[in-house]
Amino acid sequence: MQKTVSIKDLIRKDNNKNKLKMGVEKTVPFLLFALASISILTTVGIVSTLLYETFLFFRDVSIIEFFTNTEMKPLSRVEPSFSILPLLSGTVLISLVAMLVAIPIGLTTAIYLSEYASVNVRKAVKPVIEVLAGIPTIVYGFFAFTFVTPLLREFIPALQATNALSPGIVMGIMIIPLVASLSEDAMNSVPKAMREGALALGATKLEVTMRVVIPAAISGIIASFVLGISRAIGETMIVTIASGSSKNLTFDITQSMQTMTAYIVEVTSGDAGAGTTAYYSLYAVAFALFFFTLIMNMFAGYISRKYREAY
């Protein structure tokens, strides 16, 4: 009643093409391996260019001077001098302001969402916070420069047009979603049974949160802080726009100051020609930046891995 289809014959015919099939089978892993090694090449590229050009820089400038000098005048024709300290102070200060905003607000947001909020509130709030995380940093820079700084100057007349305070605050706002979502993840992974144990003893939600949940999730929470700091150190556009380019070794947040990242922008978009000491200094600063952020990211990874093993 049916026409006979000899599938076996058809398959056998296909098997004659098996050489091609097996050839593909053997080639694909090598191709994919080659693609996967691009990511390693990228790292090698970053590390080797930074190392090489930094090496060239330290032929011109003594490494001790670079870390002890307090004057940073890379483009001065009369007496150029190089020091990372003013850039470090700018970076640390602005990051500090940012974390003073991001840590309290980020952590309490995480606590609210993980411990208090109803399912509906959570469903409504989380996407908004994700939107906050998706806004390009250039928009935050614009916000800091054209809105936050003028607003702050109403209250603090001494505030300069470019300063550390405004970009610090805005950067903190930018980092809130990062701290909030990572801390919330850490708190969510605390077993329900631990909360129930405390609640059954008559503890309030706040007490459960403070004495049970946070201690149990502490390494994840700290990891989120560390990642936040790393993010602050590496952030470029907000500070380039709103914190100015004065290379002052100062801790006055009303002053204009420059971070490591903003320095890189200034030199690359400026007149320092390739081969000049100012040009090489760029790589020395970038190397320091790369090094600090790498250490922090690895540290954060290490502590959050550790807490995952705990349960």
Binding site: I7, L10, I11, D14, K17
Partner: peptide, 19 residues
Amino acid sequence: GPRIHGIKDKKILKEIVEK
């Protein structure tokens, strides 16, 4: 199965599926 073994003809595939 038939496809990965190189059978592409739609008519044949239809027959195989029914069978």
